[in-house]
Design a protein around this nucleic acid. Structure first.
Lengths: 250, 250
DNA sequence: AAGTGGTCTAGACCACACG
DNA sequence: GTGTGGTCTAGACCACTTC
């Protein structure tokens, strides 16, 4: 007779984490509420400091809680920005149905800082797509409500944009896409590749990410009507701050 | 005179993690290689066990390394599947440019297990989109190469699909979309909302996710030509196994 | 000043993997 | 059997936040 396998008891730190997670997901603990601290958990469960910390670290690494030094551990809030892929299709009737996830639809103003513009030798993947190793690179950081939410690195074939406003800080009215249009290379087709992963250290710093926050990586290629690739843009988004929306037919 | 701020030394565990990360990202340690273990780090740096563990946990939570019980900690591998949003546009000329990220383009066979079909009362968000609280729900899990990569939960308005093959395991040739077509409700418009976050515990179990792996959450609504929503599908993807591709005009 | 999280030490016992 | 990671204890000092 086969012995029925006994489900092993989860370790203490996990049971504590499960209880706290339940309280968060059920709404018993709300956005911004303070969780029981290390000392409280030690007393309540009769455990060592390291064990209490381990329990809290589970929730922190899950992105459900954020530690504040000298203060406590708090329930994290989620108020994403909606980013539309195809504006054209999103405007159509059928695309105006109810969204699944609530999000901030009012166009909150974003600010741009840390703009840098350089002529560089592109890495292999970018060079292959643009058919050019020589590129102009525009790096920007976007913030909403004073909090950084996105890093963006745009690559343009150097031969195409040399001596245009695209190589300068002030790109003029309409921005870089308008300038590409002036050159007869209006981007009309876009291909976006979307990934998600944990952030690299420099991304954690630049986006001021708490532990347990993934980033969404969007690699976007813009093509002209003739199918010529004119821009490769890699965007790094704070995953907790964004919902991407893509609308399409067929 | 303003004192120039002295950059504080990072803690030991962080410096060790930085060194190991460097070795991984530079390619010095390759996919599947074994990292120095806890004992090795203790000896090499003259630190306590907990500190060595803390260093390794950084890389594990970043998704760069995977611990194997009783064996060691290993460099993680990344070989994503490419998932296309709009098949139609992806086939067009301009969309056939080089991809930024390498991925497995050969259509690897996937298997479906854990299929369940139930009549349920939908949660608010789904009911609002479908204009129906009564829904049929199809849950599936997809695996590639024997490893689970995606969970999928499809909702259909009960009144629409009652007494059709959509409420049965065998949906017949063409699957549920063909059956919706039989009813005169062929889905032709799609709206997808994409998020990324750390997995919930049950997702970690069902997708067998190592620590440090985010999930991509896709909420997809299918509409008929007349703009009637006929399906809400929530997909949970192992973020390390997927690259999403979206192609669009304008 | 008191409380909080951040780092670190020096032990311990366990289950599991590998040779 | 030996080494590995997984869990846990009982202390310590520090920097920071809050009162």
């Amino acid at each position: 007779m086969q012995q029925s396998p006994v489900p092993p008891e989860p370790p203490i730190y996990r049971r504590i984490a499960d209880g706290l997670r339940e309280a968060i997901l059920s709404g018993e603990l709300r956005d911004g509420d303070r969780l029981p601290g290390e000392n409280a958990l030690m007393a309540q469960y009769g455990i060592a400091r390291a064990t209490a910390r381990q329990a809290l670290s589970v929730l922190i690494n899950e992105g459900l809680a954020v530690p504040k030094r000298g203060s406590g551990v708090y329930v994290r809030q989620f108020r994403p920005i909606r980013r539309h892929g195809s504006r054209r299709l999103s405007r159509e009737q059928w695309g105006r149905g109810q969204a699944i996830w609530e999000s901030d639809t009012r166009g909150r103003p974003y600010t741009v800082d840390d703009v840098t513009i350089d002529r560089e030798i592109a890495e292999d993947a970018v060079a292959r797509v643009l058919n050019s190793r020589e590129v102009w690179v525009r790096r920007r950081r976007y913030s909403v409500d004073g909090r950084p939410v996105q890093l963006s690195v745009s690559h343009f074939p150097a031969a195409l944009v040399e001596n245009t406003a695209i190589t300068r800080h002030d790109t003029g009215p309409g921005g870089v896409y308008a300038r590409l249009g002036d050159l007869g290379h209006t981007p009309v087709h876009f291909s976006e590749e979307v990934r998600a992963r944990m952030p690299h250290p420099h991304e954690t710093v630049q986006l001021d990410l708490p532990a347990g926050t993934p980033v969404i990586v969007i690699g976007r290629v813009a093509y002209t009507e003739g199918g010529v690739p004119v821009e490769v843009n890699e965007m790094i988004l704070d995953a907790a701050s964004y919902v991407l929306q893509y609308d399409f037919d067929s």
